[in-house]
Nucleic acid binder design. Structure first.
Length: 288
DNA sequence: CTTTCTGTTAGAAA
DNA sequence: ATTTCTAACAGAAA
């Protein structure tokens, strides 16, 4: 579910709500989602106060004032991190538009409680997401394995060019490769390719300099704009307060199969590229 | 009812 | 070395 703009939206929402707060309890209801001994996980987090939240690609990293362990959180496809304050909890749960039973629900697998009575719910329908504590060296190692982050880093055209260097795979596959560029997922890969007028199935090394420049600009633009609108809720994404993203209605190709292209008379066509559902206007994005 | 698809990615296979 | 395929899981859609 969440790609860079969604994860960044969650990060910003959590920053203002949990930084400085001390964790009083960690309720692990589904041990599989904790990638380490659960007892150790709970004991380390207990009585720790969140000092900062960083992001690399789609990975969130929480640091603490009392120790140097970093909490890594990956939401994968359907993970959610929803913060609920004491008042709402006392009133009987979070007023979630599509859910009447509030939180926690059957997908709330890990629940953090804070000193002020608020809680943070890690929900994940498909259970692909995970949490893990790592020491500084391991954190550095993991961060270093990621490619350039288009928002955290400078993301110059030269960096972009270098990331694509010599790739014969489809350009979309390279955009999705987190070790080259960190944070782009299936939605924004399709959106960026459309904006740049490039067919996602084209071999990366066949793009001209002009096309690469258009794609580089398209990536920067789409990600920044999506963050500005609080991300895309296609299905499960919720921000840190349980709200939906507002970028969904601004999507121009993703999920618009058989609908009219916003730029021309063409129809959006759905196929499979790099093993993923891929949306294209064949008029605006010729294979050449 | 059965089959296919889904926003991710680690790991295996090619 | 790089690229492609599959599995992990639950549920919605066809």
């Amino acid at each position: 579910m969440p790609e860079l703009p969604e994860v960044e939206t969650i990060r910003r929402g959590l920053l203002t709500n949990i930084v400085g707060k001390t964790i009083t309890n960690v309720d692990v209801r589904k041990e599989r989602l904790v990638r380490m001994p659960v007892k150790q996980f709970q004991q380390t987090l207990q009585n720790s106060s969140v000092s900062d939240i960083e992001r690399r690609g789609k990975l969130l990293m929480f640091s603490f004032a009392e120790h140097d362990q970093t909490l890594l959180v990956h939401l994968k496809m359907t993970g959610q991190l929803i913060y609920v304050n004491k008042e709402i909890l006392v009133a009987g749960g979070h007023p979630w538009p599509s859910l009447t039973d509030g939180l926690p629900n059957k997908y709330s697998h890990i629940i953090f409680s804070f000193e002020d009575g608020s809680q943070l719910f890690f929900n994940d329908q498909r259970q692909f997401g995970y949490m893990q504590l790592v020491p500084p060296e391991e954190k550095d190692r993991i961060v270093a394995a990621y490619g350039v982050d288009p928002i955290v880093d400078e993301f110059s055209f030269e960096q972009f060019q270098e990331a694509l260097q010599g790739r014969t795979a489809p350009i979309k596959a390279v955009l999705l490769d987190q070790t080259r560029i960190a944070g782009i997922g299936n939605i924004y890969a399709d959106e960026a390719c459309f904006l740049a007028g490039i067919h996602p199935a084209r071999a990366a090394h066949t793009l001209s300099i002009e096309e690469l420049k258009r794609l580089h600009a398209a990536i920067s633009e789409i990600l920044r704009k999506a963050i500005k609108f609080g991300g895309t809720t296609f299905r499960d994404f919720r921000d840190a307060k349980g709200g939906k993203g507002n970028f969904t209605e601004l999507l121009v190709v993703y999920g618009r199969s058989k609908k009219a292209c916003v730029k021309c008379a063409g129809i959006i066509h759905k196929s499979k590229v790099a093993g993923r559902g891929t949306h294209v206007c064949l008029v605006c994005q010729p294979m050449k």
